[in-house]
Design a protein around this nucleic acid. Sequence first.
RNA 1: GGAGAGGUGGCAGAGCGGUUGAAUGCACUGGUCUUGAAAACCAGCAAGGAUGAAAGUCCUUCGAGGGUUCGAAUCCCUCCCUCUCCGCCA
Length: 425
Amino acid sequence: MLDPHLLRTDPEQVRDALRLRGFELELDALQKLESRRKAIQVETEGLQAERNARSKNIGKAKAAGEDVEPLLKEVASLGDKLKSSEDELGKIQKELNVILHAVPNIPHVSVPAGKTEDDNKEVRRWGEPAAFEFEAKDHVDLGEALGLIDFETGAKIASSRFVVLKAGIALLHRALIQFMLNVHTQEHGYTEVNVPYVVNADSCFGTSQLPKFEEDLFHIKEHGFYLIPTAEVPVTNMFRDEIVAAEDLPLKLVCHSPCFRSEAGSYGKDTRGMIRQHQFEKVEMVQLVPAGQSYQAIEELTAHAENILKKLELPYRTVILCGGDIGFASALTYDIEVWLPGQGKYREISSCSNFEDFQARRMKARWRNPETNKPELLHTLNGSGLAVGRTLIAIMENYQTKDGDICVPEALLPYTAGLELIKKA
RNA sequence: GGAGAGGUGGCAGAGCGGUUGAAUGCACUGGUCUUGAAAACCAGCAAGGAUGAAAGUCCUUCGAGGGUUCGAAUCCCUCCCUCUCCGCCA
């Protein structure tokens, strides 16, 4: 959520900034509602003040043993007026909130203009895509030939976009998780957390999956829970309604979790293979930092994600998302895209975002600034470090042999219990 | 699932219809004292919001949401959460 104060004092500037992402702020409607809110709030608070004063007098008179009947008569008419004024104010504030909660974050000055992912700007590239002496297969052909990736059984026990991994591939998948967690905790200074994989509506509101993106979530209606679409939701919400001590900052947490996404609206997109699943695993980095530090933190966090790819020797490029492609809550997002020989393309494997205080304002996640001794909103950041399923794909496609076997990358050898080459069983 | 107890400021913990936004303690901030620190003493110290140039004034908030009342932290209803005992169980 944007600072309502900024929206009141500088609406044109906000509107212009949001146009970069193709969002048109309805200034007229907003300002009309806002001026009504102002008038009615002033009126309501005046009536409340009057009621409070009169009630206090009644209390005093009673204590002094005076007759309070005349005072009660005086106040009788106040009740209805106050009630209707309060109701009206509540209604307007609700309307105002509906609008406010649907306004996306203001993009950072470094965000390039553009409408689609084609307009994202490459900021760096690492590694050389390998030149194969044979025709490189994609992970589906490789996995099915090995008999270790089974889409049909996934579809049978759940539905399409679910998969069963077996033997060496399942082991490689597990090894990746251990490897990533160890690198982030031992080399990058993150604290590992293990969290609930279902969350309540308040948590979804805090990180802004709700109210706007409900259709992307799996919802367990009878309990009011949502399956998490990313560990960002439970981990960031650990600090909802909290005031963090300055000495505990920056908070750097890493969490492995499954992620569940309905993928509503992506019918027909990436239907082949494991690229887009209803359930996948991810290692997620989350940081909460004081306001002045978030732009340094986003560079570091992105480098932490890139470091995993470097250790796995997977070629990648990093792009900065353009105004039209950046997420609702983010002020700045770097996507890291890994080279997939099977597709001959770079594909997203990590998304690292600085939300500034947008999520923190919704969540009331604050820290106490020792300089002022007052609570201030934190800045929140997160990034995949990395998407495990897509990393698995990248390894399969980049480390395939002529015979269709998969070499285990050197960095993973300590995690694979002696397995060096994944072959047909 | 059954029975009981409880949810109050950064933390602990009083209050159980009327000048209570809330005693007290701890923590924190400033001051006195000290060569410096500690201790002691004095003072300050919730958050969010409206209005205003500012000082200030006012409103809201005692788990959440309804209700009773001139007035609710305090009474009533619903829900959520925590703890204790019993049952079941990875």
